[in-house]
Simulated assay, not measured.
Amino acid sequence: MADLGFRGLDNDILDPVVVTGYIATRTHKLTRCEKEANRVLAVGRAPLEHGFAHLKNWRILTKLRTDPARATHLLRALLVLTNLEINR
């Protein structure tokens, strides 16, 4: 999933798919279905953006010097702790 400013494809040669929303212009107004598609995309993307915003606020990624596999486990644990704190 990508935001409306994204242009391009991912690096997967076998399945090059990127889900983006619809953009309205002066000459092209969005239909009701296109607006609903944008809304569904935004709902799915919001938790991810909130999680990365928390990680950026903590500045935990600026000094991370480890291999990507360990970083992935660390980020998952931090997001779980963040969600527990938010829901508390």
Rank of each mutant, 00 (worst) to 15 (best):
A2E: 03
D3Q: 04
L4Q: 07
F6I: 04
G8E: 06
D10C: 14
D10I: 10
N11S: 14
D12N: 15
I13Q: 09
D15G: 01
P16A: 04
P16K: 01
V17W: 09
V18I: 09
V19I: 11
V19W: 07
T20W: 01
T20Q: 04
T20Y: 01
G21L: 00
A24L: 02
T25H: 01
H28G: 01
H28K: 14
H28L: 05
K29D: 08
K29Y: 02
L30Y: 03
T31G: 10
R32N: 10
R32M: 06
C33V: 11
C33W: 09
E34V: 04
E34G: 05
E36G: 02
A37R: 05
V40R: 12
L41S: 03
A42M: 02
A42D: 02
V43A: 09
V43L: 11
G44D: 07
A46L: 11
P47L: 10
L48F: 08
E49W: 07
G51C: 13
F52D: 05
A53N: 08
H54A: 11
K56T: 07
W58A: 12
W58Y: 05
W58T: 07
I60P: 00
L61E: 13
L61P: 00
T62Q: 13
T62K: 15
R65F: 13
R65V: 11
R65S: 09
A69F: 09
R70L: 09
T72Y: 06
H73G: 05
H73F: 06
L75H: 01
L75M: 15
L78Q: 01
L78W: 02
L78V: 10
L79K: 00
L79V: 14
V80A: 11
V80S: 05
V80N: 07
L81A: 08
T82P: 01
T82H: 14
L84Y: 10
E85V: 06
E85G: 05
R88A: 14
